[in-house]
């Protein structure tokens, strides 16, 4: 019953929409519901990337700190988006902080569990990878645009 509800939630998220029952059931085996109050951190830079998060409600700010610049938010992630891509590649470590800007409800997917299942079933692995790729590429494009500082005053 609880699992059924979770599968429905996982399948209802944009990342896994239309995944198919068998894969959805496998993936959902790694999932749990989580909540973060506004101001809580989902994870910190340098931590092991033990989970990834499918945001259901609220907003998460991805932050990075640099001496002289303080903390800076470089990306926000809202409902239907994914927080955490570093779980895909060794050494599976976060490279930024993720903080709930507003109260957040999310699905946490256990990274070790999901990696193991993907390794065991390459078809599932490929499917999961295909679903993560657009987010990765989009973030890369957006970062490039931000880097151009298009609204800045030309020197």
């Amino acid at each position: 019953m609880a699992i059924d509800g979770l599968e429905k939630i996982v399948g209802g998220h944009a990342l896994f929409a239309g995944l198919g029952d068998a894969f959805l059931s496998t993936v959902s085996g790694c999932a749990k519901n989580v909540r973060f109050a506004a101001g809580d951190y989902l994870f910190h830079e340098g931590d092991d990337a033990a989970a990834l998060y499918l945001i259901r409600e609220g907003h998460v700010g991805l932050e990075i700190a640099a001496a002289g610049h303080g903390r800076m938010t470089f990306q926000s992630a809202g409902p239907q988006s994914v927080v955490g891509l570093s779980w895909l590649v060794p050494p599976y470590r976060w490279t930024y902080d993720a903080r709930a800007v507003k109260d957040v409800r999310a699905i946490a997917l256990d990274a070790t569990c999901l990696r193991r299942k993907c390794d065991a079933d390459p078809a599932l692995g490929y499917e999961v990878m295909k679903r993560f790729m657009p987010t990765i590429v989009e973030r890369l494009h957006n970062t490039r645009l931000q880097m151009l500082d298009v609204y800045g005053t030309p020197s």
Partner: peptide, 16 residues
């Protein structure tokens, strides 16, 4: 495009 943590709105390019 970027903000201090006290900003509670969206961060990212307009297409997002």
């Amino acid at each position: 495009d970027h903000a201090a943590p006290d900003w509670h709105g969206h961060v990212g390019v307009v297409t997002t």
